[in-house]
Amino acid sequence: MIPALGLVAGIVLGLLLQPAVPVWAQPYLPIAVVAALDAVFGAVRALLDGIFDDKVFVVSFLSNVFVAAFIVYLGDQLGVGSQLSTGVVVVLGIRIFSNAAAIRRHLFRA
């Protein structure tokens, strides 16, 4: 319950503050969102599996976002930024879908 409140608090905070994203950081925002979603879905599934761990969650979130942003940055430098972004989105997307499916099975037994 409290973690969900944290999520909601973050969203409300973002809506209220409307932080201005610096121009250089804008290409990384969508990728960071996908990476963060992947970490969150993984955490929820782990919670339902009964093997959730705080440290793993924090580390996986940070490393996910960092690595995803780094890949996009690298791609931008190499001139293949959009392709690498696509790759990141595909891989993380598959993981999100798989985890979401597991969560669904947990919750609805279907």
Partner: peptide, 13 residues
Amino acid sequence: LVLVLVGLLLATA
């Protein structure tokens, strides 16, 4: 904190 950060990220995006 990470969850708050995620929410912030989502709202910003």
